Simulated assay, not measured.
Amino acid sequence: MLTTGLILILASLGLAQGIFLSIYLITLKNNHRKSNIFLGLFLLGLTIRIGKSVLNYYLPLENWQNNIGISGILFAAPSLWLYGITLFEKNKEITYTYYIHFTPFVLFLFLIPFIPRNGNFESFWNYGIVVFHLLFYLILSWSYLRKNSSNASDSIVKWYRNILIGSTLIWLHYVGNLFDFRMYYIRGPIFYSLLIYAFSYLFLNRHKFNLQKYDSSRLDKSSSRALFQSIKKLFEKEHVFLDDNITLKIVAEKLNVKAREISQAINENTQQNFYEFVNLYRIEKAEVLLKDVEYSNEKIATIAYESGFGNVTSFNIAFKKKTGYTPSAYRKR
């Protein structure tokens, strides 16, 4: 009884979180409104479908209630594919031909009063539509990702890939229903709850969900990689990181590019900001000095300054974050 209650609470919290995120995305007004709406519709459709499974596991539902729950996947699946298109192609015009993909959902709603819910026909609607309809759009989405991944930033590619992986795992749970109804039926909602919490974490923390930060930039993926190699060469040959006053502007002037492009190249190729990238070189320099016998009697402050840090405090914090040791402990090792 206790386990049943915990499962219900976990699944219900996940569903509530899914509804909250869906509404937030659909109503969010920014430069990425189209992609936000499709992502919100995808999450809402999954939440409706998973919610039906939770309720049906604990309470007997009317036929029309079950059918409404099933209909969620019919607009979630094409929304997943359209989200990918609008995520990778921000200025893509979504014409009426794209919205034809929602026709099965509309037809299903009109046919709800006439759809029987018994025997083999029930299984067909419950599993057949969900499994094969979602599979079709998963294939379209994975294919789209494969074709367009070379033209988008790594952060966008990884984000959409993670969503597709989660969606594919949910699809596999539905396939499991075909073989063992009792074993897999409630696992789907539980897994979805865990998935939606992971999604929420990424949504709120990974770059503040700012996946399209450099949408207005003319720097494509190959140019970004080439510029990043130039930045690395500059750091390794001229040791500009040793200047404790180094800035994006100074590096940009040396390479004759815009400061924003320097930031973009570093962010897209290392998932670090400029100062994290600079500190990485400084810490590598500090490690060399701490191992050098000629510096064995030098103060930690001297090591910090000669590595490019402006003060000892920031040096200690950055060094321990990177190595797991304070500079003094590292030297003793």
Results as ranks from 00 to 15, higher is better:
N297P: 05
F315H: 02
V288I: 06
N267H: 10
L242Y: 04
I246W: 04
G308K: 05
N267Y: 07
R331G: 07
Y275V: 09
N269S: 11
E294G: 04
I300P: 05
A252N: 01
E298I: 01
K320L: 04
L242R: 14
K258T: 06
I246K: 05
N273I: 07
G310A: 15
A318E: 14
Y325D: 15
E284G: 12
N273P: 02
G310L: 10
A318P: 01
N269F: 04
Y305S: 09
N279Y: 00
H239F: 11
F315R: 03
D243L: 09
N279M: 01
K258E: 12
E294F: 12
K249C: 03
K254L: 06
D244Q: 12
S296A: 13
N316K: 12
S263H: 13
K332T: 09
E276T: 12
V293F: 10
Y295A: 09
K285W: 00
K254F: 00
E298S: 14
E276P: 06
S307N: 07
K322H: 08
A329L: 14
V288C: 00
R260N: 13
G310D: 15
N279G: 09
D292C: 05
I317H: 01
V251T: 11
I262E: 05
F315S: 10
E306F: 07
Q272H: 11
R333V: 08
V240L: 11
V278Q: 05
N245R: 10
G324N: 09
V293T: 03
P327M: 12
T302G: 08
Y295Q: 06
N273R: 07
N256H: 14
N267P: 03
A318L: 07
N256T: 09
K321R: 15
H239N: 15
Y325E: 14
E261N: 11
I303F: 03
R333Y: 03
K332H: 08
K258F: 06
S328T: 12
T313M: 10
L290C: 03
E268G: 04
E261F: 01
S314Q: 15
F319G: 04
S307D: 15
K299V: 07
Q271T: 08
I266Q: 02
N256C: 09
E253R: 14
G308E: 11
S263N: 13
Q272K: 14
A301L: 15
E253I: 10
F277E: 04
R333Q: 13
V278H: 04
N245C: 02
P327K: 04
N279K: 11
I300S: 11
D243H: 05
K332Q: 15
D243Y: 05
A259I: 03
L280M: 06
I283H: 00
Y281K: 10
R333I: 13
P327R: 06
V257Q: 00
V240E: 14
V240W: 11
Y295N: 12
I262C: 06
V312D: 15
A304T: 06
L280G: 00
I250R: 09
F319P: 04
N269K: 03
Y305L: 11
I250D: 07
A259Y: 00
F277K: 00
A265F: 03
N245H: 02
K320Y: 04
H239I: 08
Y325M: 13
T313N: 14
F315M: 15
H239S: 13
P327L: 13
R333A: 03
H239G: 09
E261R: 02
I317C: 01
K285S: 08
Y295T: 07
S296C: 06
S307F: 03
N316F: 08
Y295K: 08
Y325I: 11
